[in-house]
Amino acid sequence: MPTNEQIRLIEHTLDLCRKVWNFALRERSYWINSRKCPVNACSIISEYIIPANELYPNYNAQAKSLTLAKEQYPELKTVNAQVLQQVLRKLETAFIDMKRKGMGFPRFKNRYKIRSFVYPQLGKAQFLKDNQIKLPQLGWLEYVKSRKIPDGFLVKQARIVRKASGYFVILTLECDVNVPDVLPSGYPVGLDLGLDKFVATSNGALIERPRFLDSLHRKLTLLQRRLKQKQKGSSNRHKLNRQIARLHQRIADTRKDWHFKLAHSLCEDAGMMFVEDIDFRVGAKGMLGKHILDAGFGQFVSILQWVCWKRGVYFDRVNKDYTSQVCPQCDTHSGKKELKDRVHSCPECGYTTHRDVAAAQVIRFSRNLCAGTQRGSNCLWRRSDGDS
């Protein structure tokens, strides 16, 4: 709950972080582009020319240049030095991830893209008091404390995040404690995710999929239609953009809240939880991508994994191949099913149930005996219910 003066300082800090990011990214991109062209095949229009003895502008070189630039640009002195250094560290991480994880080339940021900055050190003085926190240059800020800081934990970092609904502070805590991994034990539950039923459990429960986007889709369409008529850069367009952003955040918050409540309800009577190992980003690029993104399967699996760890429930992922083609009772391969086939009926043993429930039971059986083994092991159809 910052004051108007603190809001001005936060926006000023975000603006300077954006300028530092763009300048440092341009410096790196110019250096890379100057090394791409062969000396005998230069462009006849223009070319990036940087001396051959110029070293690559990594984090250390750019951090040193940032210190020297403060003499030429006094505006840089108005922001905490470590905040700007963290921007350069983030850029360094982006270039490392580009090679290590195969991610794309970092992009330049406009005023809407830079939404947070971090204070890596808060000092040794008292900076927490009830529902107030003291941050460099911002002073004491009041905030809504979502939960009490546990005993024995130290606050190491604070990140200020600007969202459509306001400003948030994220505190990073540290504690010298070893948390053991959850061991497989207790009652196993398999989960099958889908668009027809959001979750089907191996116990036979079918949970419908809420349409988070559809509930506010008409209002969102009207606002985006008005946005086309606004002049770019105008204050009315900026106000309408904020209104659209608040609506998107409302949809996202509703989805996330439902995911957390569902994850906790599934962990009530379970000792082990198994889901399919699926990359939902592939399906999000197809013709059902809008519905897959609205359901948020990837977010739900991540939340479920965290809730299982918090509540002491063993969590593991299962090979997704053939889970809908095998009978959970007799392990008979019944062949590929069409999407319209919603009932599993085994021609061998006559077992009949909902298709998604059968898949969830196969998921449970496939890893029940293999729980605790290395992920991706070939124990696909082994069962431990006493019938095998």
Rank of each mutant, 00 (worst) to 15 (best):
R242G: 15
L135M: 08
S388K: 05
P120T: 12
V177A: 15
E208P: 06
E54Y: 09
K19H: 08
K232R: 10
P57D: 12
A371P: 06
F280R: 06
E11Y: 01
C370D: 10
Q126G: 00
N131C: 05
W140Y: 06
V83Y: 11
N40Y: 06
I96H: 13
G166M: 07
G283K: 10
W381L: 11
I45M: 12
V307E: 14
Y73K: 06
M103F: 03
T172M: 06
K285M: 09
D341K: 03
V20W: 04
R311N: 02
K285H: 00
K232V: 15
R225V: 07
N58S: 10
V182A: 00
L380E: 00
M287K: 04
L16R: 09
Q229I: 05
L141V: 00
Q374P: 03
K145I: 05
P51C: 09
A69H: 11
R111Y: 07
L216N: 08
I292S: 02
L247D: 01
F198L: 11
K239M: 11
E338G: 01
S215E: 15
L288F: 11
M272T: 04
I45N: 14
T93R: 14
K77I: 08
I170W: 05
H264N: 03
G376I: 00
D279E: 03
A200W: 02
V275W: 12
L304G: 09
G152L: 13
Q85V: 01
P188R: 05
S265C: 07
D181G: 14
I10F: 04
V87S: 01
L122H: 01
L173P: 10
S235I: 09
L206F: 08
P150Y: 12
K197V: 11
R255I: 07
V155R: 04
I32T: 14
V318Y: 08
L128R: 14
R364Q: 03
D253C: 12
Y56Q: 02
V39W: 13
E174V: 13
D181S: 13
D130S: 00
R250Y: 04
Q325M: 02
Y351S: 09
L240P: 11
D277H: 01
E174T: 01
S324P: 10
L9H: 03
R311H: 12
A69W: 07
F95W: 11
Y30K: 08
T332E: 03
F23N: 12
R226G: 06
L84Q: 10
V169M: 04
P184R: 14
K232H: 13
W309Y: 06
K261G: 00
E71T: 14
A252L: 01
H238T: 15
K36L: 14
L171D: 09
V362M: 11
A81W: 02
Y119H: 13
Y167A: 02
K163G: 15
E11R: 10
N203K: 15
E75F: 13
F168A: 07
R111H: 14
L91C: 02
F117S: 11
D176P: 06
L380N: 00
Q85R: 15
G286L: 12
Q299V: 11
R255P: 05
D253T: 13
